[in-house]
Design a protein around this nucleic acid. Structure first.
Lengths: 146, 146
DNA sequence: TGACAGTATTTGCAATATCAAATAGTGTAC
DNA sequence: GTACACTATTTGATATTGCAAATACTGTCA
């Protein structure tokens, strides 16, 4: 086995670096809005959904979580008062998670701080052309995964 | 609050997509070499280290883990026989994790499969110029995090 | 209609992570 | 040389997640 760092290993390190970036943003959000990026993601999805509500199943498809993961994640967010559950009228097996007024407030605060962080981070390290190129390539990367 | 998807949100989705990609590689590696990408990362770091050994502290700095996380991760890998511990002669508080012969074998197998996967993945979705551009940009991104 | 295969959600259990405290050793300052 | 602040690692308690099983409901087929 050689000591040369192969392209594949370099990719791997890049991917791991991106994960590190995510957890950095997570820490920032925790500090500035008191919620994690995961909670933020839930609130964000709900906010964009029709009537600001989504079925548990749909949430689990949108997020990076299994259904049981979503069940317990929503449990926690519900306990914090940022969402509430409501039985689905059209299918009595199902439940909606619904964004509460407090959830909207917290989301707004988190969103502002987060956008400022991201703009600052990428603004400092990349120029406009690099940002566009990186964004295009990452979109392609993400599209290819799904 | 508007419904427009902001640049920050798009970035966020990209970052999450990259996480998804990582877990996809993880599943592949589990199937093809019987270890997770995290174990792979440990073995890889050890393989490149002088004498194929590293202090627990150094491992924790290199990986995405706290020290206690590394303690228990190395516990598991050690139980599988891929690394062993050895007290550090020069500092009796410390321990080295050392790659075993079996660890080297497993690493070699994992590495070949993983590199094939990665080459295939990026080879299919990106042309040579895109790969170079993406790699440069991601390196810059990662460098900026550290 | 009523058996039954399939779907939505939750729950029990096991795995893995963090944080804080415990343990053990180092090195400097007097 | 010994008190003490600092460092390396592990351990205990707790949190979060996935997988598989349990529960509850739907919809189709005979």
């Amino acid at each position: 086995m050689t000591k040369k760092v192969t392209a594949a290993q370099a990719w791997e390190q890049s991917l791991i670096g991106v994960s590190k970036l995510l957890s950095k943003f997570d820490a920032e959000m925790q500090k500035e809005a008191g919620i994690s990026v995961i909670w933020y993601d839930v609130l964000l999805h709900l906010n964009y959904a029709l009537e600001k509500k989504m079925r548990m199943q749909a949430l689990s498809d949108s997020l990076l979580l299994t259904r049981s993961g979503v069940t317990r994640l929503v449990d926690r967010i519900e306990k914090a008062g940022l969402v509430r559950r409501e039985p689905a009228a059209e299918d009595r097996r199902g439940y909606y998670a619904i964004l509460t007024a407090e959830g909207e407030d917290v989301l707004e605060r988190a969103q502002q701080a987060h956008q400022r962080d991201i703009r600052q981070y990428f603004g400092v390290h990349f120029d406009a052309e690099e940002r566009r190129a990186l964004f295009d390539l990452m979109s392609k990367l993400v599209g290819a995964v799904a």
